[in-house]
Structure formats: C-alpha cells, structure tokens
Simulated assay, not measured.
Amino acid sequence: MKWFGKCVDYFFTGMGFGAICYVCIMTFLYSGIALTAKGTISILGISGVIGLLSMIFKTDLPMSAAFAIHFVGTFILFIFMAIINQWSINISSIVIFILMYGIIWLICLLEQKKTVDRINDRIKKRNLK
C-alpha cells in the first residue's frame, strides 16, 4: 500500500507541473486559443504519467542513465500529447519543451536543496543540545 501512495503522490505532482505549464503556455504563447476538455484531460493524464516516470530517480540506476531515460520518455509523452491535441511539432515547440523541462528541473533542485538545508538545520540544533 505504501508503494501505491507513492505512485499517487508522483502522479499528482506530475499533474501539477503539467497544469502549470499548460496554463502558462496557453496564456502567454497562445492567448487566442481556448482551453478544451480534451486538451486539459490529456495534459493532466500524460503529465501524471510523466510524474510516475520520475520514480526512476529513486532506483539504483546511475543518475545519468535515469536522466536520459526520463528525458527521452518525457519527450515521447510530449510528442504523444501534441498528436492528441493536434499541436504542430516544430523547432519552437521542441525549444519550449526543453525550456519547460529545464525550469521544472530547476524547481525540483531548489526544493530538494531547501529540504536538505532544513534537515541539516534540525541536525545542528539537535547536536547543540
């Protein structure tokens, strides 16, 4: 049951990142195009699967291999999402994908640093007592 809970957590985290990216892209790049139910559902579902794919970083694979698998898997899912939503796949959409992927990575790294710093502070406080 613990594994199922982790899967749900990763799925919803992926959905959150996907929803934020979708809203930002539709607001700033395609402001004249209305959101559709098909688009929203496909974004949330595929983003959730990308979130599940992120569980690869909790395996014993070397970080470079996990990163490569995650990047390629995420890109394939992005292409699938583009096909479902009838988006054009061109150099600008690929650049946007890479940019969003990098931003999400930066957010994750900053969040991990914050967690590590908080744990280190607790250890220091405990050792001072």
Rank of each mutant, 00 (worst) to 15 (best):
M1T: 08
F4R: 15
D9H: 11
F11I: 11
T13P: 00
G14L: 07
G16I: 02
A19P: 10
I20K: 14
C21F: 02
Y22R: 10
V23G: 03
I25W: 00
M26S: 13
T27M: 12
F28I: 00
G32R: 14
A37F: 01
K38I: 02
K38F: 00
K38R: 11
G39M: 02
G39F: 00
G39N: 05
T40A: 13
I41D: 06
I41C: 11
S42D: 05
I43H: 07
I43G: 01
G45L: 04
G45P: 00
I46N: 14
I46S: 13
G48Y: 07
V49N: 04
I50Y: 06
G51N: 10
L52C: 05
L52N: 10
S54H: 13
M55A: 06
M55V: 06
M55N: 09
F57C: 08
K58V: 08
T59M: 03
D60W: 02
M63I: 01
F67H: 10
A68F: 10
A68V: 12
I69S: 01
V72D: 07
V72H: 08
G73I: 01
G73P: 04
F75K: 15
F75N: 15
I76L: 14
L77Q: 04
L77G: 07
F78Y: 14
F80D: 09
M81L: 14
I84R: 01
W87I: 05
S88K: 08
I89E: 09
N90I: 00
N90R: 08
I91E: 07
S92F: 11
S93T: 14
I94G: 06
I96L: 15
I96S: 15
F97D: 08
M100R: 00
Y101R: 01
Y101C: 03
I103K: 01
W105P: 03
L110S: 12
L110T: 15
L110A: 12
Q112M: 13
K114T: 07
T115D: 07
T115L: 05
D117T: 07
R118Q: 05
R118H: 02
I119K: 14
I119V: 15
N120L: 09
N120M: 09
N120G: 05
D121S: 15
D121I: 06
D121C: 06
I123Y: 01
K125N: 11
K125F: 02
K125E: 12
K125Q: 11
R126H: 04
R126G: 08
R126D: 09
